[in-house]
Design a protein around this nucleic acid. Structure first.
Lengths: 359, 359
DNA sequence: TTGAAAGCGATACCAA
DNA sequence: TTGGTATCGCTTTCAA
């Protein structure tokens, strides 16, 4: 024991080199190296380690010392402890994006990825937090425990004003909802799905249709989109004297066949089928039932999927647009820097009818 | 000032009720309440607060005290600080699931969600960490900073053995890859995409085809799947004397039309089109070019999408199966509890040909 | 140029 | 039954 400096604690006595050697063998789980271990191995103080590894500009450290520290860190496989760091700092750069609880389209996924990427470029750590299972305020509490600097929550009604309060009190500088609804106290990136319905209805009216069916997926989780889309169709069509009828449809051939079999009695001459997938399903079923599309009935989807163009007749659709993730990332950044600003509301979703051969 | 106990620091002087009141006004950002604040308001020690809020069983706290503490916590909107807690505890229950860097199918998404849900039931905190942009060992370091108890990484080659070492040294009890490749030192949930190719090839050979084209998507990011699928076709077809030809295809009508235009000169009589979407695209293009399917050429997809059944002829496909997320969650849990266990390798992906009318 | 020490928030041991 | 206090890993001010 004579060679071991007195101040070292028993646990730290074991010299780091042999710790490292033992890491391969699965015996005792090698203790996770801390900055103190690095300091010891490099023969400097913890402060110096911190200075070197963080490239502190306020202090000048000699080049040989820097090298010794870097080598020691490398040898030990030292990785700083994010929690300890942000605890000390009093803040983090974590942006929490609770993952959407419903299946989302490619457009949204793309936007989501872009946003994530842009935030990372602004030096935020983006973390997706699966919120499935927990609900509402409970979820907000769980998020708040992580002390994110900003929260990008789905604007689908999960988050309540109370939830926003909880998050803000826990130190979140910005709470932003992303979806069809807005929430008191939070910024909103509003993707108003009614626009999609309105757009589809306008096109169908334009084609002279007077009885519009609106497909409402039977699968759970789609209400956040399907309800406002239906409302949008109503808002645009009913004032113009058209009839609007919601139609339940399950995503399977049988359900589509049933709907198609009753089609003629419904007296409808058009259908907005929620999205391209349901539209393709229904279009095929109608054709199989002998209903002429677009002669007897117009069929319209949404999402502008490539696959819709492969059908005959080619599927008319609603193309949606989202702004670049970059812009939204900047909004988040602004909100973080100036938490006192009033909640901003941005309408994001652009929609445009793409007439093809099915209407 | 007379009414304020001497021991309170200046910052804490402001009484909590008025802090709360000020939270609505956006003046000074109300300080985030800590357990000390709760203790002060309830007139107890921080220790007691901790006991009450964590339902500690080793200590008995009187009911009135419990109530006072709970009310104080409620009034302040207190939420515990996860980082501080896990720092003290020396471990967390965080499972990191770096989000897949490529677009994935519905099957995988479903599996992913199920796994996430099952882990949460086992009391883990599941966090998805977007790894886009950072690469390889750099990413592993970023993950390690969060000190997750387990990491579920995409098994697509991003993670290196070095990365695994970094994670383990940072205290991760289990590192599990999820994808086509395995990595030294980590458990593997192997989804060997060659199986899919083999399965498709077997079916096509069965149908008497001797020249098999294999679509390789031109879009970036698909290599991790397309390369092993091609290899699988080769492995199954070439020993049987069939010819295998890779075919680049972009996901657009033009690219498909080009490929179809050159079809007859290729002399192929079958194509495995990567997945149903590419298959549908190509099938339509072949038909438009006057190629008879399945007479002249068989077309096969993968994923068993509903939409594939809507085409005429109905698309033959490869249906894939993944085990329940529950089982995998249990595997992760086992690995966490017994970090010394040897890396397990599980083959996950089941594949089965679904013959329909296009082959 | 480097080191000592305080402190971030929560917990658990030991006393009282 | 409750309170004081050391501790987790890291950063940063102040002194040397």
């Amino acid at each position: 024991m004579a060679h071991i400096p007195e101040q070292q604690s028993v646990r730290r006595d074991a010299d780091s080199a042999s710790d490292l050697a033992r890491a391969g063998a699965r015996q005792s789980p090698a203790p996770v190296p801390t900055s103190a271990d690095v300091a010891r191995l490099a023969g400097v103080s913890r402060a110096t380690v911190s200075y070197v590894l963080n490239n502190a500009t306020s202090v000048r450290i000699s080049e040989p010392t820097r090298r010794r520290v870097r080598e020691a860190a490398d040898e030990l496989g030292y990785v700083p402890h994010a929690a300890a760091r942000s605890l000390r700092a009093g803040h983090s750069r974590m942006v929490l994006m609770p993952a959407p609880s419903m299946p989302v389209g490619a457009l949204y996924r793309h936007f989501f990825n872009e946003l994530q990427w842009a935030l990372r470029r602004l030096d935020y750590t983006v973390v997706q937090f699966g919120s499935l299972g927990t609900s509402g305020d409970e979820a907000a509490r769980a998020w708040a425990e992580l002390r994110p600097v900003a929260v990008l929550a789905p604007g689908d009604g999960t988050l309540t004003p109370r939830g926003v309060q909880v998050l803000k009190r826990s130190g979140a500088k910005a709470v932003v909802t992303l979806g069809p609804q807005r929430v008191e106290g939070a910024h909103a990136l509003l993707m108003d799905q009614r626009t999609v319905g309105r757009c589809a209805a306008a096109h169908l009216l334009d084609r002279g249709r007077g009885g519009i069916g609106v497909v409402v997926p039977r699968e759970p989780g789609f209400e956040t989109f399907s309800v406002p889309r239906l409302a949008g169709v109503r808002a645009a069509a009913e004032p113009a004297g058209a009839r609007v009828v919601p139609l339940e449809l399950g995503y399977n051939e049988q359900s589509a066949a049933q709907l198609a079999a009753r089609w003629r009695e419904s007296g409808l001459d058009a259908v907005f089928a929620y999205n391209d997938e349901y539209a393709m399903l229904l279009l095929r079923a109608l054709q199989d039932a002998g209903v002429d599309v677009p002669g007897e009935t117009a069929v319209m989807g949404a999402d502008d999927l490539l696959l819709g163009r492969l059908l005959r007749p080619r599927l008319s659709t609603v193309r949606m647009e989202l702004p670049s993730g970059q812009r939204l990332a900047e909004l988040v950044d602004r909100a973080v820097r100036d938490p006192s600003g009033d909640p901003e509301v941005h309408r994001l979703l652009g929609a445009e009818a793409v007439p093809r051969d099915s209407t």
